[in-house]
Design a protein around this nucleic acid. Structure first.
Length: 201
DNA sequence: TCGCCGATCGGCT
DNA sequence: GCCGATCGGCGAA
């Protein structure tokens, strides 16, 4: 498959986190490793939005760890979860407002052979249907943390359009039951009927 | 298919 | 010392 997409600029991320999370669906996450291009269509995202969002890592304010969420839009935020898995986020909104979108799942497009090898599976639906899985498939680690989107790290491509509303599903975010009332916010977005999302209804 | 459980470690209390 | 924006393996049903 040949990509005919355009690189999405930083300004895409300098607006409401909800809008970014929703509009990232259908775009492509791309990375180059040596001569190999890895890419996948984003099919699932979550919005984490401000200190008032108890599920957001910045809900207890600025610390060494959460400082990154206050950075410029388009900055890469990667953290280690459960001591084992990396999770990929992209910082959103204006500088000094702590928010980001978590990329939770992609549909593998290019570099599938390498992804399968990294993931230890030949089942394409299981390659990148979860935040930890997609980082393993793409070889994304904490080394990219704090860097901007771009050819040296990873980037997003799109056609400039957006998916029709009827193609988009919405639900509470996964794994944030501890976040009191915020746990019910419907800030997870996914491509309806995609077999590549992390959990199907 | 479902639910439980352990792995493993950095950041916070 | 506790816990997590996860995952894969296991046993039970």
């Amino acid at each position: 498959m040949i990509r005919v997409y355009k690189v999405i600029g930083k300004s895409f991320f300098a607006r409401s986190t909800i809008a970014v999370a929703r509009n990232l669906l259908g775009t492509c996450l791309v990375r180059r490793v040596g001569r190999t291009v890895l890419s996948g269509k984003i099919v699932e995202t979550e919005a984490y939005c401000g200190e008032d969002d108890l599920a957001c890592h910045a809900s207890r304010g600025r610390t060494k760890r959460t400082e990154i969420l206050y950075a410029k839009p388009g900055t890469i935020y990667i953290y280690l979860i459960y001591g084992m898995y990396w999770c990929l986020n992209i910082v959103t909104e204006r500088e000094d407002f702590p928010s980001a979108v978590l990329i939770r799942a992609v549909e593998p497009v290019e570099g599938v052979t390498l992804m399968m090898r990294r993931r230890g599976t030949r089942k394409i639906e299981d390659i990148a249907n979860g935040p930890g899985k997609l980082c393993e498939a793409f070889g994304i680690t904490g080394r990219m943390h704090g860097k901007p989107l771009g050819p040296e790290t990873l980037w997003i491509e799109g056609r400039g359009g957006r998916l029709p509303a009827r193609a988009i599903g919405q639900s509470p975010r996964i794994g944030v039951d501890y976040a009191k009332g915020c746990a019910r916010y419907p800030w997870r977005f996914f491509v309806k009927d995609s077999p590549y999302v992390s959990r199907r209804s």
